[in-house]
């Protein structure tokens, strides 16, 4: 099959689906191996960007989806009902961070890491559709496991969970910083 035709197929399928379509499904439809398909999608997506089209192709985890380009936000929002959402509280963001990095994770683990009850934040995140129940841990009480959703990836414009910066990166410089200060303190 010509590349142009495959591009057309992907375009048509993504448009018709609306929601994100998995790479596996696209492979099945086009009967093309994964690496080739991915390179074709990248090519298609690049051409959208290059031509500054109103639509772009977004990666959502292991899926692809069509979306409007951010530059056109002002125009597109004119057809949408304005809803304002308050920013997430610090506590809720902490819970979200724990779930994003530790998923699948139980309430107990979240609580252990934060040292404080986190039920309210968990409910809020469930309500916003940023996290979901992904199953139950095979342990006494069979506690619910939580994980992030596609909506989370879209909201924070993250391609996939594996694209998050490694959790250890957040503290490395800090540790060096405080330990040197601490050393001075003890000398005194």
């Amino acid at each position: 099959m010509e590349i142009q035709k495959i591009e057309g197929i992907i375009e048509a399928v993504l448009f018709a689906a609306g929601d994100a379509v998995s790479v596996d499904k696209l492979c099945e439809i086009t009967r093309i191996d994964r690496p080739t398909l991915l390179s074709i999608i990248t090519r298609l997506s690049d051409s959208y960007s290059y031509n500054k089209r109103g639509i772009k192709i977004v990666k959502v985890g292991d899926k692809y989806q069509m979306a409007t380009r951010g530059e056109f936000f002002e125009y597109v929002q004119k057809i949408a009902e304005p809803i304002k959402r308050n920013p997430l509280s610090r506590a809720t963001l902490e819970v979200l961070a724990v779930i994003a990095y530790k998923q699948p994770v139980t309430r107990a683990t979240i609580e252990r890491i934060r040292g404080v009850n986190s039920d309210n934040s968990v409910s809020r995140l469930l309500e916003l559709g940023l996290i979901e129940e992904t199953g139950r841990l095979d342990a006494p009480g069979r506690p619910v496991l939580f994980g992030t959703t596609d909506e989370f990836l879209r909201c924070f414009a993250i391609d996939s969970i594996s694209d998050l910066p490694p959790i250890d990166e957040f503290v490395i410089d800090e540790i060096i910083d405080t330990s040197s200060e601490g050393a001075q303190q003890t000398i005194e």
Partner: peptide
Amino acid sequence: KKFKKAAQFFCEREFAGSRTFYK
């Protein structure tokens, strides 16, 4: 502390995707 910092990272990006519309 790691997760506290990670929360900050999410805080900065919270509306990163909000200028894009999805179906």
